[in-house]
Design a protein around this nucleic acid. Structure first.
Lengths: 251, 251
DNA sequence: AATCACAGCATTGTCAACAATATTTGTTGA
DNA sequence: TCAACAAATATTGTTGACAATGCTGTGATT
């Protein structure tokens, strides 16, 4: 995970967020809070940012090279989406959902996503279908090459892209938010074997859609979500030694 | 509280927002952005704030008696919920959804709310049932007394309370957001007769829930939403002379 | 009379200093 | 050694001033 590229200010950065900055993707000339939000979103989605991690304003400023105002606005937006908890006079922390909230998140997903799957079957445009197919191939490629981080991200993105395929951007945003929060939940309560969505399940859902079988698409989504949910173990929350780990890293 | 400053600058206020401040409800000692967000939310829900109304920072500061920071944070939060549009160097405006967005909002509602109605039937707690009953009686009371504004607000709130009755606060927040945006849409494209939800429809839905008839509850919600949607007329958007109205008030 | 340029004003965007609070570190005493 | 207390530091919250931008009204020119 986030280790090498920070030549100049290695310890001034927040774990896991800035990583991709050294990739070839050119940064937008004008960094706005949306960019920061996206980055933190991704980091959470890929399990690079653990729940309860403190998000220090100053470090974030250095990391993204922006003023404090931008960082603060970004954190506020993230908190409104339940990804970050803001505690007054304490700071911002990556959200650490408990069992109750986890139940609500998966309850909402169970309500939304099967219905979305059904609707996608109803009216799917060819190009969106192609998008989904491409995504599935990316997933299996990542799986075959054991690119764990990519697989985690792609697993989540599938659900978002399916929602996008429904053509309703509002629904898509809602799903995106739920999936990201699910990522936090899985990170906390997931048993090791279920870090990602089980193999082939996404592919099966896509098949049902291709066959125009809305019933199958819906029930497969239901079972898929149930499987993820069943992979959680609330009685054994993972220890959160984030602070210690960070210290070991820094020295 | 903030009840004293308004006698002095009555015309420095933004239309429709501060109204209720003169009621007996004591203001929270420490006004935070949540309070401002709630107020603007309510004003939109009750059609007191028309789409495309400019939300001047300075006026909002005076209206709520807070600093610019609070107002800005509130506006940012509202924009993240699609209630407000932020245009750089121009300012904040009450969102003015077009037909496309309206379609998405009602599409999302059509997906969500019938499923919620069904789920509420599945496991409803007595006290929540009672809450819904009380709400219905409030609605009919407002209807009988021709308290139009109250009725508009209550019409929207019913949908939110139904979502709350499902016990899933995440779903409830999503519905709340959608209902508020619907309020904007109805204000723009609604024919006069459909400013509120048709009479008795909510009551019918509640009956179905009381009878434990999940199928009926679901289909009635579907039809209810369709009825609202059918009351929209996108070819004849209402004129938006908001600014003029404000000018008339101010001078 | 209509149009354009420009000046002045109003509004929003940005930043840096300051205040308030929390956290860490250091010290003292039992 | 440990606990309790106090100083020092770090972090967040808030405010105000300033810069940048957009808007409006005036007047000159055609």
């Amino acid at each position: 995970m986030g280790s090498e590229q920070k030549e100049r200010f290695p310890d001034e950065r927040v774990d896991g967020i800035a990583m991709a900055e050294t990739t070839k993707i050119p940064l937008p000339s004008r960094i706005d809070e949306t960019f920061i939000v996206e980055r933190i979103f991704s980091a959470v989605m890929e399990h690079r940012l653990a729940p309860a991690t403190k998000l220090n304003e100053h470090k974030l400023c250095d990391t993204f090279g922006v003023g404090r105002m931008r960082v603060r606005r970004a954190l506020l937006l993230l908190s409104s989406q339940g990804i970050v908890d803001l505690e007054t006079n304490k700071g911002a922390f990556v959200a650490s959902p408990g069992p109750v909230e986890a139940n609500e998140v998966f309850g909402a997903r169970a309500l939304l996503e099967p219905a979305i799957a059904r609707q996608v079957v109803a009216d799917i445009e060819p190009e969106r279908m192609e998008m989904l197919r491409q995504h599935i191939s990316l997933e299996s490629e990542a799986r075959n090459n054991s690119r764990e981080t990519d697989l985690i991200r792609l697993s989540g993105e599938f659900h978002v892209k399916l929602a996008l395929a429904s053509g309703n951007s509002i629904l898509a945003r809602a799903v995106r938010e739920l999936v990201t929060r699910s990522s936090l939940i899985v990170g906390l309560f997931g048993t090791s074997s279920h870090a990602t969505c089980p193999a082939d399940e996404h592919s099966n859902i896509l098949c049902a859609i291709e066959n125009g079988d809305s019933d199958s698409a819906e029930t497969q989504m239901v079972e898929h979500l149930n499987r993820i949910r069943d992979g959680l173990n609330f009685s054994a929350p993972k220890p959160q030694e984030r602070d210690l780990a960070e210290i070991f890293r820094l020295k």
